[in-house]
């Protein structure tokens, strides 16, 4: 057991998966000697060699296509995109092929793969480096979309993603890559996919979030507790397929729900959760479902970035409004 930051837990899981299973390969730009732009693959080239840690040319469309071929041939490729903003050329391969290959061949061919990319704002990065576009991928049939919120979650969920027989888009909250440390045991134990994690119990309101926003969400829950109201905090973790059962069960107890997402409001995963509550949880609801989200704007450059990001204050405002509703 050692205290690790999230990016170190990613590296630990990659190393663990590679030593457990020789079909696991890493591919991406600068993943070799440079160890990746965030150092998530630091040291892995030296440990596993050039045949398994493959520095690719700057070919973002190529990577997922390569992974489709490798996956169909029995490998388990893990692709690193340097930033989510550079993944979009690959959507063709993800949507038209990775998510479809098993289905379109009636199971004859499949392509297990993990597509890793850091996402999200808050680190004053240059243009195109700060978006949260998880909903684009969560809309695609045949995929899984997973976002860890902590070092331990990153370790366990990444192992699960690599061992999963289907393609997984694994988005890493880069704002919290090094923000907190947590004890992570390198025990090779995967965490379950397709299910939410309840991070905090509470009876008054359900707070639903994922990834980096859980920092602010948990802080808001603490502040609220000091005011005498207890929020149940749910970490969605797997955005697709979505575990509505855990969220519905919580809202059945609390009657109130606030969803927090960094992504733009419209058409986001939060909208899907709200629709699920409207569809199957309406009789439990004592207040309208609240959403705290990024705006439907282009992600601002760093000078205005803080005004875009949902903050603890914005979450608290929506929580108080939701709790006051009668």
């Amino acid at each position: 057991m050692s205290e690790l930051a999230l990016v170190e837990a990613v590296r630990l899981a990659l190393a663990r998966a590679m030593s457990d299973d020789e079909t696991v390969l890493l591919l991406g730009e600068d993943v070799g000697i440079d160890g990746g732009v965030f150092r998530a693959t630091d040291g892995l080239l030296a440990r596993f060699g050039e045949a398994r840690v493959i520095d690719t040319p700057l070919s973002e469309s190529l990577f997922v296509g390569l992974a489709v071929g490798l996956g169909a041939q029995g490998f388990r490729p893990v692709i690193e995109y340097q930033f989510m903003g550079f993944m979009y050329p690959a959507i063709d391969q993800v949507l038209n092929h990775a998510g479809r290959l098993r289905n379109r061949t009636r199971g004859r061919l499949s392509c297990p793969m993990v597509i890793r990319a850091p996402y999200g704002g808050g680190i004053h990065a240059p243009e195109h480096h700060s978006e949260s576009m998880e909903a684009l991928f969560a809309h695609i049939p045949g995929l899984r979309v997973v976002i860890p919120s902590s070092p331990a979650k990153a370790y366990g969920l990444l192992l699960a993603a690599i061992r999963d027989p289907d393609p997984v888009v694994f988005l890493e909250p880069k704002r919290v890559y090094r923000a907190t440390k947590e004890d992570v045991a390198d025990d090779g134990a995967a965490l379950p996919l397709d299910q939410c994690f309840t991070l905090r119990d509470g009876r008054d309101v359900t707070l639903v979030s994922w990834g980096a926003m859980l920092q602010e969400t948990l802080a808001a829950a603490e502040t609220l507790a000091a005011e005498g109201k207890e929020a149940e905090v749910i970490d969605v973790a797997t955005l697709k397929p979505l575990d509505m059962e855990t969220i519905l069960a919580s809202v059945e107890r609390t009657g109130r729900c606030v969803i927090v997402q960094e992504a733009p409001l419209s058409g986001g995963v939060g909208a899907e959760i709200a629709a699920g509550l409207a569809d199957r949880g309406l009789v439990s609801l004592l207040a309208p479902v609240g959403r705290v989200a990024g705006y439907d704007t282009v992600m601002p450059l760093p000078r205005l970035e803080a005004h875009y990001m949902p903050t603890e204050q914005r979450i608290l405002r929506k929580l108080r409004e939701t709790l006051a509703y009668t």
Binding site: G65, G71, R106
Partner: peptide
Amino acid sequence: SDYAGPREDFPICVPVGTQAPQAAGVALA
């Protein structure tokens, strides 16, 4: 596309040229 014969061959590819990166993946394997 569930070929009984050549089990590893890829199915017909409609999005033009998108099978080329996949072929590179197969060849790398």
